[in-house]
Design a protein around this nucleic acid. Structure first.
Lengths: 233, 233
DNA sequence: CGGCAAATTGAACAGAGTCAAAACCAGTGG
DNA sequence: CCACTGGTTTTGACTCTGTTCAATTTGCCG
């Protein structure tokens, strides 16, 4: 369904994906289920919950490099990389479908257009990475935090898990800080300011947006990098 | 040659790539040759020179999100994205080969293994983006600058354009700042410190490394994210 | 020699980090 | 039903890394 939002997928292609799905697995919250260098034989299709990619530093610091929402083929890039240079962790309890790499080889060879759609979806991850680089490199803590809330609102809205004014986002402020390249103390102060300015509230694992237009203006959020429009075959 | 460093490419596959190459073009330095939203019909194989991807902010600030070295299929991701969300600019005079997307469709359908190798190369860009996120989010200005010098040393060494102790890197300090999410003034001070510590010197468009081991230690540089080892077919 | 972009330096300032304490809150067991 | 626990959030005071602004120097090129 999510792929169809951006590309025309034939019934045969959709069925090929369904057939490729192996085991369905549940993970608890806060579980690192892929470590760097671990050899991988399947990719993870996220059905329910939130997860993230992150890298550790030797002093215990951590940088989350992307958040995944339901519908994301979370580690499809492991199909070509064979092992990852980073870790993957659940942020909430998750339900995932495992898709063996051998099946991916089979269906991408049988359906070249589907191969390009999947390839596109890993390129979309790179688009998100680039936008985060801009946030981390150039936006202030406030703008950056606002931007993250805008991104998640948009991405969750696609899968009907966010309205214009609110969505579930059960991270701790420490995890938020690990996304934003800030300390949890500073994140707390920024959240206070966003709240006092009447833009967003982050509380009890929910984001409540009071003024989406203004929030986007503050964040300088332009959803172009999420490639929402439908693309030609 | 560069693809062969990481994957076994058959002669037929190599020939298919050669055949796919269209026009060879020269660009001057500091030319933005791809703007966001521009519809693209070919991808750019960088033969000579350095180029980068960057995003602009409304206040004139700019974040460079990746640097490309000779041998990189610099905007292969435009094959699946159709248009980019960012710009591409030359940092030096460049020679490039244009590869029409129609040709890419043809050769990836004819050679599925080659398709995966090309797919891999766009995933490698994402790996580099993630490492930059870590730098921008968690490393100090000094570590971050050291890390960039390590990355370029490694990537240029693959194409025999860098030794262990020096390589050409003709950027201005302002451009360096745009990579590092810093101001040019601060970059200047960081370069001074790196020089005084006897680690690296950046001068006259060259990087001279006096102590690579120590530089890597300071930067906490682990080349794993560049996937240098050869991978199974 | 002149012109100009790039590099360098200094001084003052601000955004974000550090450290430490306090308040809050959900879940647990008595 | 309530006290206890541990993790999370909140706040204050202080520090420091990196920015800003402005001036000066350097180096290249015609």
């Amino acid at each position: 369904m999510k792929l169809r939002a951006r590309d025309d997928i034939t019934d045969a292609e959709a069925e090929a994906i369904s057939d490729a799905i192996g085991e369905i697995v549940e993970y608890a919250s806060d579980v690192t289920f892929i470590a760097p260098k671990q050899e991988l034989t399947h990719s993870t299709l996220l059905l329910e919950g939130l997860m993230c990619r992150y890298k550790d530093l030797s002093d215990g610091q951590r940088q989350i490099t992307e958040i995944h929402v339901p519908g994301d083929f979370a580690d499809l890039h492991s199909f070509t990389l064979k092992h990852l240079d980073h870790s993957m962790m659940t942020l909430t309890p998750c339900t995932i479908a495992k898709v063996p790499h051998t099946e991916l080889t089979r269906i991408t060879e049988a359906y070249p257009h589907l191969a390009r759609v999947l390839w596109f979806s890993t390129n979309l991850d790179a688009c998100i990475h680039r936008e985060w680089e801009v946030s981390l490199g150039r936006r202030s803590a406030l703008e950056r935090t606002a931007h993250l809330f805008c991104e998640l609102q948009q991405r969750l809205a696609i899968v009907e898990m966010a309205s214009e004014s609110d969505y579930a986002f059960p991270l701790t402020q420490t995890e938020l800080a690990e996304c934003l390249g800030l300390t949890s103390v500073h994140v707390n102060r920024v959240l206070k300011e966003l709240r006092e300015r009447g833009l967003v509230e982050f509380r009890g694992g929910r984001v409540t947006i009071h003024d989406l237009r203004e929030l986007r203006r503050v964040a300088e959020f332009d959803p172009a990098y999420l490639y929402l429009e439908k693309r030609a075959r």
